[in-house]
Amino acid sequence: MSANLAMTELLPLPKSDVKIPRLGFGVYRSPKNQCVESCLNAFKAGYRHIDTAQFYANEEEVGEALRKSGIPRNEVFVTTKIMSPGGSPQATYEKVLASVDKIGGKDGYVDLFLIHSSSSGPAGRKELWQALERLLEEGKTRSIGVSNYGVKHIEEMKSYAKVWPPHVNQIELHPWCQQRVIVDYCKKHGIVVEAYSPLVRNYKANDPTLVGLAQKYNKTTAQILVRYALQKEWVPLPKSDNPSRIAANANVYDFDISKDDMAILDGLDQGDAGAIVEAVANE
């Protein structure tokens, strides 16, 4: 199942010729003065997938890191997100266009643009999706998707979406919050599932089960969590501003978590109660 995983591995997006790297680097709350350096450290460690958002207030820094890295633009996969509509379809469109400009300049593009939250209600969600569809048609983004969407939100899209299913759904995922209903739904429809907070923001660093497995495999607890997400066929987005941890979180390709140990980690699930950010609403 997982022995052939590699850092360079890509997953195809549904009904698209775009492929997404299986491991991403998150820059949530990475301060402006730190973000460029962290992205460059991530590139050095082999990451080719950066995940930002309007809400993180560091899109320009991600763009700067891209240019400074010297890596050809088509070899890096960049995601950003919009949290809420702009007040009218045109204003919402201009809001997403502004992100593309910040990251890639006037003639630039992003690889994936997500609706960050389901919280803007049916009309807001529709307006956001239609702005992303327009961006996709114009080649300003190569793929579009959603974040924190449950089954009901993705089903609702069928009434207006020209692009369905969304290419990606990015949700909180780790052993304590496995969100199995939405994960199974996405799998069934070919939607790629991205895992944010895969390291549980280090809150579980002393969990006895996790610590025991880290000792068994001679890995850090964070490495166990990233590897777990990869073996679940999620796309994990570990975040760090610490150069050695950035590198360590990508150093997860020289071991396999056994089937029995995966089952032990699966057994830690607390359902919605295990979420530290948000469990989606499915119905």
Rank of each mutant, 00 (worst) to 15 (best):
F43I: 10
V27C: 06
E37G: 15
S16Y: 08
T52I: 00
P31V: 04
S38T: 10
K15T: 12
R22V: 13
Y28E: 03
F43W: 09
D51F: 01
Q34T: 15
T52R: 01
V18N: 03
D17C: 05
E37P: 02
G26R: 05
A42H: 05
L11C: 12
D51V: 01
R22P: 00
V36T: 15
N41S: 13
G26I: 06
L40S: 07
D17T: 12
L11M: 13
K15W: 06
V27Y: 03
T52G: 12
E9N: 15
K15P: 01
Q34D: 14
S38P: 07
A42M: 07
S16T: 15
P12V: 09
V36G: 08
A42P: 08
V18F: 08
N41R: 11
P14I: 10
C39G: 07
R48M: 09
P31T: 08
P12E: 11
K44R: 14
S38G: 12
D17F: 05
Q34W: 02
S30W: 00
K19W: 05
C39E: 02
R48P: 09
G24I: 00
E37F: 03
A45W: 07
P14H: 09
L11K: 13
G24F: 01
K15D: 14
I20V: 13
G24C: 01
V27R: 03
G46P: 05
N33I: 10
P21E: 10
R29P: 00
G46W: 06
K44D: 14
V18T: 13
H49Y: 08
T52D: 00
K32L: 10
S38M: 06
S16Q: 09
E9I: 12
I50N: 04
I20M: 14
A45D: 03
P21K: 12
D17A: 11
R48N: 11
G26E: 09
A42D: 03
P14C: 11
K44L: 06
H49E: 00
L10H: 13
K15M: 11
F43A: 09
L13H: 06
Q34E: 15
K19E: 14
L11S: 13
L40D: 06
Y28Q: 03
N41K: 14
L11E: 13
R22L: 12
R29K: 13
C35K: 07
P21Q: 12
V27I: 03
R29N: 12
F25Q: 04
A45E: 05
C35H: 07
G24R: 00
G24V: 00
S38I: 03
D51N: 08
E9D: 15
P31S: 07
L11P: 03
K15E: 13
L13Y: 06
R48E: 07
C39S: 07
Y28D: 03
G46M: 07
E9Y: 14
T52A: 11
S30F: 02
A42G: 14
Y28A: 02
D17L: 04
K19C: 13
H49S: 10
K32D: 11
S30A: 14
R29H: 11
P31R: 04
S30V: 10
K19Y: 11
L23F: 07
K32G: 04
V36D: 08
G26C: 09
D51M: 03
K19N: 13
H49D: 01
V27K: 04
G26P: 10
L40F: 08
G26V: 06
D51Q: 02
E37I: 03
F25L: 09
L10R: 15
P21H: 12
R48Y: 09
V36I: 15
L23T: 05
